[in-house]
Design a binder for these strands. Structure first.
Lengths: 138, 138
DNA sequence: AATGCCTCCTGTAGCGGCTACAGGAGCAAG
DNA sequence: CTTGCTCCTGTAGCCGCTACAGGAGGCATT
């Protein structure tokens, strides 16, 4: 299957960096459209699929949730979605990123402080174990 | 099962904030020890289980991975693990937290910049879609 | 003792987002 | 035709839980 007009799934996978099995999974759950087949039953992909799969990969790598990716795709995907709607989804994602950063900053501070107080085996108690032990009675 | 000497699983769950089903799961996968039973077949838990489950919950809530939790437990858990070893695991976790923070800071910056450049539907192109579209050809 | 209600038991399946594999068919080159 | 590679479908699995069905145990009340 080396037709100029379409790609086999392996070639699509190499082009987009998305796993063959993941591509089939995406088709099965409706994230990407079902492609036409050869008479032998093999899938034939075109430029639209190349674009959409690359887009999905980019969004996932930037931390957009699968639900957000689906939402953008249901707006028409990269070719048709309205900019203001995509921008709104991205802004929401940015809020989540900022909230996670704030959580991690708190956690980092707590861990660093506790580890600093930890004196190792010679001490009568262990600051890290004490920290983790706090939940013993709720 | 209201014996002074032991707790039933429901009471253990209320005491530790760990789900009944999760407690059974932990026993099944070996994270916590199998407790003795009544003649009727009910599990009877003691103070050791209360402590370990609380500890597990604390560690998970602070973001320690299941593998890290298991590592600490295999060192003897909160009652017996050596402080220096637990501290080392915590320090490694702190490194991961810091790395994640750095990743998120980069991502936050990229998203914020891109969203700022996004002018909405009136523009000829969409900065957010362009960003996500970068992966179309690898 | 019987009843009713709550708790606990085992076994199994499911969630999400993929990932992997078995067994067989298709396809192209030599 | 043979060979070697790609692709197909169907199924199961990863992880860390979470949920449920059907039935048994336990306790208080009548």
């Amino acid at each position: 299957m080396r037709d100029e007009k379409g790609l086999a799934i392996g070639e699509l996978s190499r082009r987009t960096g998305v796993n063959i099995e993941t591509i089939r999974y995406f088709e099965r759950v409706g994230i990407v459209a079902t492609p036409p087949r050869t008479s032998g039953g093999r899938r034939v992909y075109g430029a639209g699929h190349v674009r959409v799969l690359g887009f999905i990969r980019g969004a996932r790598e930037l931390g957009f949730t699968p639900a957000e990716v689906r939402a953008i795709l249901s707006l028409g995907g990269p070719a048709q979605a309205s900019c203001s709607e995509v921008r709104e989804i991205a802004a929401h994602h940015l809020e989540r990123v900022r909230a996670k950063m704030a959580d991690l900053a708190q956690l980092e501070s707590l861990l660093a402080t506790t580890i600093d107080r930890c004196e190792g085996d010679g001490a009568a108690s262990c600051a890290v174990i004490e920290l983790l032990d706090q939940y013993t009675t709720t």
